Amino acid sequence: MSSASQRTALAPTDREAIFASVAETARPSGWDTSVAISGIETSGQAGEGRVKNAILIAGPTASGKSALALDLAERQGGVIVNTDSMQGYSVLDVLTARPSPADLARAPHCLYGHVHPSVAYSTGAWLRDVTKLIDDGALAAQPVIFVGGTGLYFRALAEGISDMPDIPPSIRDRWRYELKEQGAERLHRILMREDSAVGMQLRPTDGQRIVRALEVLDASGRSIAEWQAARGQPLIDRDSARFLVIEPDRAELVGRIETRFDRMLDKGALEEVKQLMALGLDPDLPAMKAIGVRELQAAMAGEMGFAEAIERAKIATRQYAKRQATWFRHQLGPEWRRLHSVGGAMPAIDLRPLMQS
């Protein structure tokens, strides 16, 4: 049997048998900060398209990281690059806590609200967008501040990732349909026949990873293992970068989450959910899973009261913040400086010493 890398796609007979009944479809204000920033050099490229003197600011949702980034950018004339998977989507301005128009006027911001909710935006797609900013010169000659709460984005930025292929919507839809109709074990048998090396690494019940392996093979003709082995290069110069992660007091963070969601409702969160629902999108798309969308949608549909929906959204946000904090605590290395809030204020930060990776 030929290896997966030698195929151009799944066998035609498999396509006909599996997809005979499937139609082709297409889818269409934060805490006070005090920051010592004198001595920060302007950005630039340190060879191979990498950003020099980048500042990376990670932290859980509602931790005050955006306020810190804006303070730095405004004082130093820097540009802020979104490093959060949800804030890249359009429509969800309020529910994803994107920078306000007033914030956008204070400093240049990139990669906010540029992706339609119908798109399953990935880490690889974000990395390509950052690469384009670098290639276009948008990040040259000014401090570049990457800020957000998506750990995989930071890892890809600093370490590089495999450049996975784009999956056409028709192929993605096919395999999701088959997962629902046939089940994970049936798809696992197909994967074992087409790419046994990958199939042996996955549990027969792990439908999400099985579908991912099949759609990559179907779209590219190459095993997902081959793509994963070809790791790309970091987009930042690690030796000159500053790595900061905010670790807020848990009680303070819970309070901020509570009040922030109340403000979101005042600013039009319900209208955003109505606009999103009007698009008629697949509920499994990432944008449809933004915290608050399902809860408020259920309330508008009469499936629960608004008070219950609001409380559920707040609980979901607290749980998400806890998962983020846990990931940052265990996955970020010693080069990351840990910042702890004191009474709701960030400590003074002297970024002059270069933090060694």
Rank of each mutant, 00 (worst) to 15 (best):
A125P: 13
P283W: 00
E271R: 11
G268E: 05
A213D: 11
A23T: 10
V94Q: 05
W227V: 07
I291Q: 00
R242W: 09
A321P: 03
L265Y: 05
P248Y: 06
P108L: 08
S196G: 12
R263C: 05
D239F: 12
E258P: 07
A26T: 15
W336E: 01
G305Q: 03
D282E: 08
S5W: 10
L351D: 00
W327F: 14
A20V: 10
D266N: 09
A156P: 04
P234F: 07
V273D: 05
G221V: 12
I310N: 01
R222P: 08
I171G: 04
V91A: 01
V51P: 02
H188W: 15
D237C: 09
M164V: 00
R222E: 07
T61F: 10
A278S: 10
S118F: 13
R242C: 08
R231F: 07
R231A: 11
E181A: 13
L332R: 06
V79K: 04
V211D: 11
K65Y: 00
I236E: 09
V198M: 12
Q182L: 15
Y121K: 13
A120Y: 10
Q275D: 11
L214P: 13
R189G: 11
I236A: 07
L235T: 09
L202D: 07
P165R: 01
T8N: 12
L253V: 07
Q201T: 15
D135V: 14
S220L: 10
G148E: 04
V51C: 08
F146G: 06
V198K: 15
L296V: 02
M304Q: 13
P353R: 01
A287K: 02
T317G: 04
D350F: 00
A107W: 12
L281R: 01
R176L: 14
R250C: 13
G149K: 04
Q228N: 14
S38H: 12
E74N: 02
L104E: 14
V342H: 14
R250K: 13
D173A: 15
K274I: 12
Q87N: 06
P353V: 02
G207W: 14
R318E: 07
V94N: 06
T317K: 05
R176D: 11
R172V: 04
F328H: 03
A219T: 13
G113E: 06
V79Y: 01
W327G: 01
L279A: 02
K132L: 15
Q319R: 14
I224N: 11
Q319E: 15
M300A: 10
S34N: 09
P165W: 04
G151L: 08
R352Q: 10
V130R: 08
R15K: 11
I190H: 13
W336K: 02
T326D: 15
S66Y: 01
H330C: 04
A62D: 14
V216M: 09
S170A: 15
R50V: 00
R323S: 14
G221P: 14
A301W: 03
D262W: 07
P283L: 02
Q297K: 08
G333P: 06
A309L: 01
M277T: 14
D93I: 05
R98E: 05
A11C: 12
L281N: 02
G302V: 01
S5C: 11
Q324S: 03
R128M: 09
I18A: 13
V273W: 04
R50C: 02
S34I: 06
G64P: 03
I80R: 02
I40D: 04
R222D: 11
A278P: 04
E24G: 07
M1G: 15
I210K: 08
